[in-house]
Design a protein around this nucleic acid. Structure first.
Lengths: 228, 228
DNA sequence: AGACTTATGGAACAACGTTCCAGTCTTATT
DNA sequence: AATAAGACTGGAACGTTGTTCCATAAGTCT
């Protein structure tokens, strides 16, 4: 919270710090879901009081943004160092997008947080990665903004949906049975008013989310190339 | 809450009903934002108690979904009746997407709600509209699912971002000055680590959201046509 | 007229984010 | 070594929220 003019010597091994708080928050989020992260639960896990946490963290939104950035930073770092050598821009974009997707798959709360605040640092990281590859793709300068933000919106949109879906089948139910339940409900809709949704319902339970996500990315990439 | 086997005679002119509750909720949401909708505020506006509201509405999520559906139903109804006559599928998709965009622009809370719950009825309405036009576009059956959901994800992604942005400049600040503030922050980022975001920052304050949104739609449409 | 369902409104509950504050520990200065 | 000043801690307390409970009224049916 304050700037430290001198080098900090360690207090104790279990001293509080933003990093330790964020890691504990991630552990709670991963283990028990988005609703389980409260300052009381966090304080209990860190064996302290809620007030102490506020010395290192501005508020809950700050905490969630830091946790999200912690996860996304690993993704962007890993992807950019691995994909730089001899990959086409298209491949790099696919790798980055899939990295984000897998991160959300492993930490569903990240999806919700990403889609909720477009100006947080984690989103900026992804936009930078996507934008750089859009440039490398040879898209003219005026079109780069629209191309990169379109990819971003698609990624964030699916992030939010996936996160909501994960929340939906929180306990016990796995993804397939949860989707089957939704599909069953959709299949009972009025055939005249909702023909397409009924057709989708048939495919929904056994579709591959990763494949669907990648297909969307490829669709946008094809669109970008067609207007290049 | 219960099924009514007989026709309901009216109680009083000011009798509570789900419709009246939803309309009051929309009025609060539009006037004072997402954070202002509480059951206490709602009860005060309807001159009743919070308990009475729960007779007509399951919980807050149900209320928000109903309010969102109220807004989106108007959009889909208006677009489908107007755009049917002599419009290409592409034009119909653009009209539908723009209708959703304008609805979110007029009611920013709709954007947040749409991106938060992908299985609510309002989303289903949009998917049906998009999907029908994707079929009309001549996309082969196996590809329809990916094409329609990609359009949906993009729309919902931008919906969430736009809603978050609207929340961001809640009081006094208009959109341009709010974006200028974000752009100023981005312009101060490290040029080596974030070259693209800095370039975006220059364009950000004076860009047109509607145009950006439409450009994304057209990009995906171009992608769909290129693989047709 | 009574019995039963539908509907109302206000009190009460548990949980949350956040603030406050009385202390304790660490470091720098005398 | 003593002391002052800041950094940090932990737990109590505050105000607000969604939701539940319940006594009671209004309407409907036999």
């Amino acid at each position: 919270m304050r700037f430290m003019t001198k080098i900090r010597t360690e207090r104790r091994a279990d001293a509080l710090s933003k990093e330790r708080i964020v890691e504990a928050a991630i552990a709670i989020l991963d283990q028990d879901g988005e609703g389980a992260l409260t300052f009381r639960a966090l304080a209990a896990r860190l064996a302290t009081g809620s007030g102490a946490i506020y010395w290192h963290v501005a508020d809950k939104q700050d905490l969630l943004a830091a946790a999200t950035d912690h996860v996304i930073a690993q993704v962007t770092a890993q992807v950019t160092t691995k994909a730089v050598k001899g990959a086409t821009p298209q491949e790099a974009i696919r790798a980055l997008a899939l990295g984000v997707f897998d991160a959300i798959d492993a930490h569903p709360w990240v999806g919700g947080q990403l889609s909720r605040d477009p100006f947080q640092y984690a989103v900026l990281r992804i936009l930078e990665g996507v934008g750089g590859q859009v440039q490398a793709l040879g898209v003219p300068q005026q079109a780069q903004f629209n191309a990169a933000t379109a990819l971003m919106s698609f990624i964030l949109g699916l992030a939010g949906q996936y996160a909501a879906g994960a929340e939906f089948h929180a306990r016990g139910m796995d993804r397939t049975t949860a989707l089957r339940a939704v599909a069953a409900k959709w299949a009972q809709l009025d055939p005249i008013e909702h023909p397409f949704v009924r057709q989708v319902a048939a495919v929904l339970p056994e579709h591959d989310d990763r494949e669907q996500f990648l297909a969307g990315i490829d669709l946008i990439l094809a669109g970008i190339e067609s207007v290049r």
